[in-house]
């Protein structure tokens, strides 16, 4: 568990923090997620995907449950999402970190509209139809943007 924490906590905490937007709540969710991962590790099915995907999904779902339960979503408008992302990036330590380079590279690859869609879907916990409504776009456009963006990201690691 200690090893697991050292290896995955940054990735999980990053996702959780960006969903709940609060350090101490993120800590609670991270803790919950680790317990859940530990207790359900037998149900992890290697044929269904990578371990990383599985653990990130567990953490993300718990974080989304959290914001749904406190009905945080109404206020989580597009603007505040963008603001909080920029704020966090500036607030983070200025020591040299490769994950930040990664973020910059990704920002360069994605056009702002794609990022906005992915952020809403991934960190806002919106469904595609909710995101379409929020952004005043046809559902088809949201679907296309999400797919193009995700495939572009996948290409980056190949």
């Amino acid at each position: 568990m200690t090893e697991f924490y050292d290896r995955y906590s940054a990735a999980l905490f990053g996702v959780i923090q960006r969903i709940v937007k609060d350090d101490s709540e993120a800590e609670d969710v991270l803790q919950e997620a680790l317990v859940k991962i530990w207790n359900s590790i037998e149900s992890y099915d290697t044929s269904k995907g990578r371990l990383f995907t599985w653990v990130v999904n567990i953490s993300r779902n718990l974080a989304i449950d959290k914001i749904r339960s406190r009905q945080h979503r109404v206020s989580a408008s597009v603007q505040s999402l963008d603001d909080s992302l920029t704020a966090q990036r500036q607030a983070s330590p200025d020591s040299f970190r490769p994950e930040h380079i990664g973020l910059q590279e990704i920002t360069k690859q994605l056009v702002p509209e794609q990022r906005q869609v992915i952020d809403l879907l991934y960190f806002g916990g919106f469904t595609q139809s909710e995101a379409a409504e929020e952004l005043n776009l046809p559902l088809g456009t949201v679907k296309t943007r999400a797919r193009t963006a995700l495939k572009m990201l996948a290409k980056l690691v190949r």
């Binding site: 906590s9 990735a11 995907t53």
Partner: peptide
């Protein structure tokens, strides 16, 4: 798999050391 990998990259890119 491509979509999953893409999301994985996105998640990793947003890693934040607690």
């Amino acid at each position: 798999e491509a979509l999953e990998a893409g999301l994985g990259v996105y998640a990793e890119a947003h890693a934040l050391a607690p």
